[in-house]
Write a protein that binds this DNA or RNA. Structure first.
Lengths: 199, 199
DNA sequence: AATTATAACTGACAGATTGTCATATGTCAA
DNA sequence: TTGACATATGACAATCTGTCAGTTATAATT
C-alpha cells in the first residue's frame, strides 16, 4: 500500500497523481496498465513513482481501497440505522454502490474494475467476504433469520454478497438501466428471503 | 481462440504445447505469465507461438475453454438424469468441479484461475452466466420452483451460480477439506431453497 | 547564519519482454 | 519438376520495468 512518502505529499500533488492513476485504470485493466502512461500524464519522474508505490499493482490497490472503505462504512451505518435489518441494509447498500459506479466520472474505472475482479478486489468490496464478519455480526438482528445461531450468519452473508456482486458485474454486460438493475437485484433478494422452492 | 494452424498440429506437438501452457499458468496468473517462458519450455521458436495464438491471452482462454466445456456438458447431463431437478444437479456439479480442481495435477492451475476470476472466465464456468439460459431452461422442472414462469428461472440460476463460484473461490483461502467445503455449499444451498427468513 | 541530518527528487540505464517480418523450409497437386 | 500454399524460424525494433547514484530540498541544531 502506497508508501509513506506518497501520503506525506501535499494534497495538490497527491490528487494530481490519483487523477492520473484513475485515468490509466479507466483506460486499461490492471494487467494492461503502464507505469509509463501514469508518469507521463502526472508529469512526475519515473523514480518518483517508485518512491510512492512499490509497483503498479500497489497503486491500483491504493485506489481501490479508497472506494472499498466507503462501502464498508456505509453498510455498518445502515445496519445501525435499520436496527440490524440485514436485508434492508443490503438493499440500501446496493443502491449506494450503483450510484457510485454509475457516476459519469467513475463509470469506465469501475467497469474495468468489476470485469476483472480478482479475489483481492472482491475481498475489499464485500464487507463479509473475508474478515468482516466480526465487524458486522454484532450489529445484525438474527432473531428473524433462519439460522440456529450467530454462527450461521456467515452463510447468509455469503449468499447475499455473492448475488450482489454478481448482479453488479452482469449489469455491465446487460446494459440495464439503474432502475431495472435494482429491480432484478431486489427480485433475487426476495427469492433469497423466501426460498426458491414453493411452499 | 487458437488459430487453425495450431489445431492442425500433430497431436504430440499440440499436447506438448498445452503442457507448457498449463505449466506457465500454474506458476503465474495471466497477468504475470510470459510467452518467453512458454516457448522455452515447449522448445518452439517465438514465431511459432504467434502463428498458433494471437497472444498469451488467446492461449489462456484456449486452455480455460477445455475445462469449461466439460462443466457445461456435465450440468446438462445431470439435469436430464435428474428429471430437471435443478438443486440436485447443481449439488452434483459442485462435487464434480471440486474433484476436478482438487486433482493434484490441476491444483495450482485452478488456484491461479479462480483467484483471478475475470468476467470472461466466470462466464465460461457458470452455465447460466450469460447465454446459457436457453440451453438449460428447457431441461429444468420449474413446477416446484417459487417463480411465476420459466422467465424467473434466470434469477434462481443467478443466485445458485453466484453462490457456487463464491464458495469455490473462498475455499482456496479457507483451506477447507473437500468434505467441509461441500458441507458449506450444501448448507447455503439449503438456505437458498428454504429462504433465509424464519417462517 | 552556518552546519548537519533527513527526506524527497531525478533520469539515465541495464535487463527483459513483446509482436513482427523477411526469409527459409516443407508439402502436395498438376 | 514446378508452382502454390502452408508452416517454421529467429533476429530485431520498440517498449517497459525497477534501480541507483547523484542532486536538491527541508528542518533541526548549534
Amino acid at each position: 500500500m502506497a508508501k509513506q512518502t506518497f501520503l506525506n505529499l501535499p494534497d495538490e500533488k497527491k490528487e494530481n497523481i490519483i487523477r492520473a492513476l484513475k485515468k490509466e485504470f479507466s483506460k486499461s485493466a490492471l494487467k494492461d496498465a503502464l507505469v509509463s502512461n501514469i508518469i507521463r500524464d502526472a508529469k512526475i519522474p519515473r523514480g518518483s513513482f517508485y518512491q510512492y508505490f512499490n509497483d503498479i499493482e500497489d497503486a491500483y490497490y491504493f485506489l481501490v481501497e479508497e472506494y472499498s472503505r466507503k462501502i464498508k462504512k456505509y453498510l455498518l451505518e445502515e445496519l445501525v440505522k435499520n436496527s440490524g435489518d440485514i436485508v434492508l441494509s443490503y438493499r440500501k447498500l446496493y443502491r449506494y454502490i450503483l450510484s457510485m459506479i454509475e457516476d459519469e466520472e467513475n463509470k469506465e474505472y469501475f467497469e474495468k474494475l468489476f470485469l476483472n475482479m480478482s479475489y483481492d478486489v472482491q475481498n475489499m468490496f464485500t464487507p463479509n467476504f473475508n474478515d468482516g464478519l466480526n465487524m458486522i455480526v454484532m450489529h445484525v438482528d438474527v432473531s428473524k433469520l433462519n439460522i440456529a445461531s450467530k454462527f450461521g450468519l456467515g452463510y447468509i452473508l455469503d449468499i447475499i454478497e455473492s448475488t450482489m456482486m454478481n448482479n453488479i458485474i452482469k449489469s455491465y454486460k446487460r446494459n440495464l438501466s439503474k432502475e431495472k438493475n435494482i429491480e432484478v437485484f431486489e427480485k433475487e433478494l426476495s427469492l433469497i428471503c423466501l426460498g426458491i422452492l414453493k411452499k
